[in-house]
Design a protein around this nucleic acid. Structure first.
Lengths: 254, 254
DNA sequence: CGAGTTATATCTGTATACACATACAGGCGT
DNA sequence: ACGCCTGTATGTGTATACAGATATAACTCG
């Protein structure tokens, strides 16, 4: 049951446990509705309970697990409405970042980097040969854009809170890329997102705080729409990492 | 909701450690700028490193401590600007709650409770005999109002995130009560806050999402103003719990 | 006298041991 | 037959032991 540990070497057991368990949960390799004890998981990952315990605490914090009162943990299934809220939360936080940057002024160097990333994304999408094969590149650039936007605030608080929010399943901007049914739909969607990137830079530069905030919120809602569409179509759902964590509202649960 | 030492008995060592350390840090019984090791703190609290370790992890999460790369923890001093951001974050999150309640509709029972709490606060402030002696009562009612507003969303995510945000020093609505220089100033301030309570209920009831959100944000900024005034007056600062955690911007730190 | 090196004292990360709480099952009494 | 009680097994919370890493300080050599 040892997974691709390649990216996990050199880290502490605790970090490795958290990463491995998170992946196992999101990939559906651990069953929802089932109760897992520290002891079980320690044996499963071949390490002692100490790092497992720390990892479980962390994953509970991230909302992936629920601690049972009698002991043990259960994988938390999310209603589509809960996922919406998660993405809404990210939008609100990124909106706060954008507004603060506009109101306080954004350091020139950071703004330049945002412009550069935006230009790279634009170039990628402008290419007529754009296809789903380019999605990983897009995902990387998009992720860096979002990260840079937050980092530009130079606020430890916001950087920390957004990192936490992004760890939640389906929250991060990158987690929803890759589930487009065809190249044209993908490009069309991403072009709209890129317009948000361009306009939020413009808003920040012009000190339009409310506008910058509104744009980042709407940007998150683009992800939201995208995801909700996927939830309703089992075909797209198969492409979505973490789909096993979604609980359909009508599903009866004990 | 017992917040005295009495709440500390019967709990696990881990919880006790977290509570005790948090209090010691906020009350200035542990020196900022000084490096504390797990071992030291374990001996200080007469328990083993295991629960201390978990507590330190938690307090680091709350932004009270910084983990040193070489090991050990240092109490994090906050610039006034960082405290502002903390309160702004709370305002943004509570604003999100209020907006969602307005947009989705707020359960009638919850709305009734908010109205009841608001009325109680109103009655307290309307009394001509109002004085600083009534502040603890106000603090209790105010805290319950805010908590109820969040709980009314029935969103695990928002409840969890706001609980975390409120744990940060100076963030919670209650942490800033009690530092008024005289009865009249206190009452005047609290009356404005109470107007926010009244109007946000009105906005939620009328499904005015943007208004509800704006009111809660402005409500948080009332705390912000209050705090900033205190930071500039050493007299009020003495009344502020956690004042030792504030770092003056001009202060040189080695 | 200064810089590099080594020895030492800590400290963290992890494993393990143990006690107490809790759930479950089987037996006993009614 | 059903319900209660008790014994057992399992799990968590905590303490402790231990190994590897790291800073510090002293010492040696140039």
């Amino acid at each position: 049951m040892v997974s691709e540990d390649s990216a996990r070497i050199g880290q502490s057991q605790t970090v490795r446990a958290a990463m491995t368990l998170r992946d196992m949960i999101i990939d559906g390799r651990l069953e929802p509705e089932m109760r897992y004890t520290e002891t079980q998981l320690a044996e499963l990952l071949s390490m002692s309970r100490t790092p497992i315990r720390a990892a479980l605490q962390r994953l509970t914090d991230e909302g992936l697990l629920t601690a049972m009162p009698a002991g043990g943990y259960v994988i938390r299934l999310l209603l589509p409405s809960e996922i919406s809220e998660t993405i809404e939360l990210r939008g609100v936080l990124e909106g706060l970042c954008a507004r603060l940057l506009a109101e306080r002024g954004c350091p020139g160097a950071a703004l330049d980097e945002l412009v550069a990333l935006s230009a790279q994304i634009e170039a990628l999408l402008a290419d007529d040969g754009f296809s789903r094969a380019d999605l990983p590149t897009y995902e990387r650039l998009n992720g860096r854009f979002h990260q840079k936007l937050v980092a530009a605030t130079e606020s430890t608080l916001l950087i920390q809170e957004l990192a936490r929010a992004n760890n939640r399943p389906f929250a991060s901007a990158s987690s929803l890329v890759g589930m487009y049914e065809n190249d044209r739909a993908a490009r069309q969607h991403l072009l709209i997102g890129q317009d948000h990137h361009r306009t939020v830079i413009e808003a920040i530069r012009s000190r339009q705080g409310a506008r910058a905030e509104a744009i980042m919120r709407e940007h998150a809602r683009l992800s939201q729409r995208n995801l909700m569409r996927a939830v309703e179509s089992s075909r797209s759902l198969e492409l979505l990492r973490g789909a096993s964590l979604i609980r359909q509202p009508d599903e009866e649960t004990g």
